[in-house]
Design a binder for these strands. Sequence first.
DNA 1: TATCAACACTCAAACGGTTTCGTAGCATTT
DNA 2: AAATGCTACGAAACCGTTTGAGTGTTGATA
Lengths: 339, 339
Amino acid sequence: MKKKITLKQIARELEVSISTVSKALKDSGEISKDTKDKIRAFAKMSNYRPNSIALSLKNRQTKNIGVIIPEIVHHFFSTVIKGIQTYANTKGYNLIICVTNESYEKEVINIELLANGSIDGFILAISEETEMKNNFDHLKEITEQGIPLVLFDRVTNEVACDKVIIDDKVGAYKAVKKLIDNGNKKIALLTTASYFSVSKERDRGYRQALLDNNFEINENLILELDHFDMDDTPIEEFFDKQEIDAVLSVNETFGIRAMRVVQRKGLKVPEDISFIGFTDGLLSRYANPRLTTVDQHGGRMGEAAAEMLIEKIESEEENEIYRTEVIKSTLIEGDSTIN
Amino acid sequence: MKKKITLKQIARELEVSISTVSKALKDSGEISKDTKDKIRAFAKMSNYRPNSIALSLKNRQTKNIGVIIPEIVHHFFSTVIKGIQTYANTKGYNLIICVTNESYEKEVINIELLANGSIDGFILAISEETEMKNNFDHLKEITEQGIPLVLFDRVTNEVACDKVIIDDKVGAYKAVKKLIDNGNKKIALLTTASYFSVSKERDRGYRQALLDNNFEINENLILELDHFDMDDTPIEEFFDKQEIDAVLSVNETFGIRAMRVVQRKGLKVPEDISFIGFTDGLLSRYANPRLTTVDQHGGRMGEAAAEMLIEKIESEEENEIYRTEVIKSTLIEGDSTIN
DNA sequence: TATCAACACTCAAACGGTTTCGTAGCATTT
DNA sequence: AAATGCTACGAAACCGTTTGAGTGTTGATA
């Protein structure tokens, strides 16, 4: 087993000083060609690579980005990570990824763990529990410490930092508009509990589109579901108690599940009832029929977030100007709506 | 903005030496109670946390694990990551995740980038291109440098290290056995190009099961597909040219796509034709009918890999004894087979 | 009254690099 | 011959922490 070689060892071996070795490898003009060649040959032979920890300590930068997300087995979030990776890699940054499992405590712990010099900045989507508690002190603290932070998707106004979101409201609006234009009258909304920032925006878009088109808002047409409850009974009851001709779902799974429920009831999609979901993931793509969706462009969000963060990290001045970038959502026409 | 505070600053502020501060915070017996109390109070007040980079340099351990995977927007791999996280977190390790996009070059680069002291060990699934090239020098190199390495899922015998795999062959065998027991006669296999280690094993299990039950192996019943080709024509032709009453697919997507093709042809699943896929992901769960699958237990694989790696990292002796842990796959009965 | 241990600290080296400054040795200028 | 300028290298500080060795003061012991 050949251990990692250091400058010191090279220096001793070649009987020069450590600084000479360092300078030679950096192609400094201070070192003669002969010495340089000798040192470089030896370094190459012994496969020398500078220790990145030592560099981090010296330069006070780690070239690591802390990415904190609520869930990883999740199409949208993994897409965002991919986007972050793509951009970060071109800039020489690595990703330290922590999953909070939607827990407030884990979010706090992970942030504290990384804020001690392990990373140059954070990219984070707020966990459900944190949104519920509405407590963002841990985030304020890192910004106060001067650690750059970019929030994406699940954001809050409480914290002054860069943000990347999609136009959830507009996305929902466009979806409902399409359903209305197709002649649908009873348009339902499948959503999650109302304290989630994204659901809230989508809910707003839904209502706005209805109002703008002279529809009345019927609260009976709005069904709140729980992520973790896999029981379809509430969905069945919802569709049993009233006639519905179109559905907007704030995510993929509710949409797919509802589609199955109505299909089992013998309805045809999209002839009898139309569906539009959020998130253009695998589920939507492989659904039968292919679900029409509002694409959130997770990849682009990730890239945007990474770009904003790295810009902040590498800029000298401490400007306190924060931007919020809005990624445009797109309606992807599948076969669950009439096109 | 309050910058991170260091031992040196505390020392200056309290007019003691750096070592006194350090020792006081570590509750050393060398320091008097009075001084200790004073220092600890100040440290707490100023929210002191030791710089983890400095500690890494000193202790020559980073408490970071490098995880290198071919793809992240992928149910199986993200499940594995989750498993790794779960175990690693309990041991105080963080994850640095790199995605190779199935590229050999990216695999090499990412390994080199992290092998310079950034991580204490690697968990890795070999990229497709690397499997194709059959070149594992970069992996051999890190083991030679004494950096612990655990390979999972996509492994090779060329590299001496710990491994975690599932019993792909047995999984496929059990699946085919079930199809045979259900009375099916024409059992097809949907697979990928043959140089992928996992496909190879699943192929073997398929053949073995057939042979053991006195079936002839008919190469016409085996269809090789490309991941990235979304065109269903080859699948359609495959099912057009012959009668098939059961299908084993080496992944989810081929299975779901084939199921849709035959459903469009008017066949009923599972009455007319049965399907079993590998990977129990969202797609299978939300498919219509719910796909019967061979569950690979990605989470357990991840946990096992993390456990093996951390054990190696934290063990003093350099034993050259390597284990291969085999995770048992389970047949999850959905509605795409007769149960 | 020396001697010695205990106490409560400080010093300095080390981890592996980078970088500023200093200087020995030589050649060139005046 | 003295002053100057280059070249090519070394010494040392620094990043933030740990830790073994060293030190000055006190009180007890022989």
